[in-house]
């Protein structure tokens, strides 16, 4: 549905998007995840034709957004970070304008408007001025605008920022619902939100795509940070001997711990963490090594997120300097 190839965008001297490539299929909820300033909004603005790219290509449903913007934009509904609302109009007048601009006329326009009004739940406020609406309702009017014309792709830039918890839940449910019939891409810097709504996650940091997978796969494949820590009375060489016989043990470190004991940290990428820890325990028990403590620390998506988004900082800056030379 969406194909982004080698997208690069300089904002003045600042490299906002750095050689970004990915492909998005049909009919799922995708999450754009990244810290503030990672290039999420810039990428979305380019994908929707609001910004030009320095280089690279974006294709929506086979139409190039730069070469064939009219066709490509018909397939997209976009809600920018700040809902683009005309404050002195009513939601109905506003939706009329957007619907007309998307090429809807007459009865089809009326039907669509009534349809989206019900879908996003703004029926009670359709005749109030937008400036008088609460933030949650404004956001919904913004989403309604994106839904008009029944676009295949709906792109929402931080749709839940600034809403109260109840509104957030409502908007999330709405987005999940939209994901049944549309391809939805939403951006967020809140991990739990993306985890809750999205089937697939793209993590972006410093303008680069650092991970793109299903939420549960991300957890599984990137769990190299999981750790088994044990406190043992055994001697270092004894520990080495014991662990050598255990299947699945990767790198480990030994440091002197409390009261002459030894702390051993085993890093592992093994998915079956508890199976491994049982084997380690059994091995120690068999060889008579005492264990005072055995702790399993499972890396969460949060750890992965922090790890992925923080490390490339130096690499990204270095690359830009290299390019300038």
């Amino acid at each position: 549905m969406i194909k982004v190839e080698h997208l690069t965008k300089y904002c003045g001297e600042f490299l906002a998007v750095d050689d970004l490539s990915f492909e998005i299929g049909e009919g799922q909820v995708y999450g754009f995840l990244g810290p503030n300033g990672a290039g999420k909004s810039t990428t979305m603005n380019i994908m929707t034709g609001c910004l030009s790219a320095t280089s690279g290509k974006v294709e929506i449903g086979g139409f190039d957004i730069f070469e064939d913007p009219d066709q490509a934009k018909r397939l997209i509904g976009y809600l920018p970070e700040q809902p683009p609302l005309y404050m002195n109009e009513t939601p109905l007048e506003y939706l009329h304008f957007v619907g007309q601009a998307k090429g809807l006329r007459g009865q089809a326009l009326e039907d669509q408007i009534q349809n989206v009004v019900d879908k996003v739940g703004i029926r009670p406020v359709t005749h109030k001025r937008i400036s008088a609406l609460s933030k949650g309702y404004k956001q919904r009017v913004g989403i309604a605008q994106a839904l008009l014309g029944d676009p295949k792709v709906i792109i929402l830039d931080e749709p839940t920022v600034g809403l109260d918890p109840l509104q957030i839940i409502e908007i999330r449910d709405l987005i999940k619902d939209l994901g049944k019939n549309h391809t939805v891409i939403l951006s967020s810097h809140i991990l739990s939100e993306v985890q809750a709504i999205c089937e697939k996650i793209l993590i972006i940091a410093h303008g680069k795509l650092v991970a793109f997978d299903r939420a549960e796969n991300l957890e599984n494949t990137l769990l190299s940070d999981s750790e088994i820590t044990l406190l043992t009375g055994a001697k270092p060489e004894q520990v080495t001997k014991i662990l050598a016989g255990v299947e699945g043990v990767g790198d480990y470190t030994q440091t002197p711990g409390e009261e002459g004991m030894l702390t051993v940290s085993i890093k592992t990428g093994d998915r079956d963490l508890y199976g491994l820890s049982s084997r380690v325990f059994a091995a120690f028990a068999k060889s008579g090594g005492t264990l005072a403590e055995l702790r399993v620390k499972k890396a969460t998506l949060e750890d992965i997120f922090i790890q992925l988004t923080e490390t490339p900082k130096a690499a990204g800056a270095g690359k830009k300097e290299a390019e300038e030379k």
């Binding site: 034709g49 609001c50 913007p69 934009k73 018909r74 920018p80 005309y86 957007v98 601009a101 998307k102």
Partner: peptide, 14 residues
């Protein structure tokens, strides 16, 4: 000022 230019750019009108 209202940031509605973003909307205009994203609509299928030149």
């Amino acid at each position: 000022r209202q940031k509605t230019d973003r909307l205009l750019y994203s609509l299928p009108i030149s």
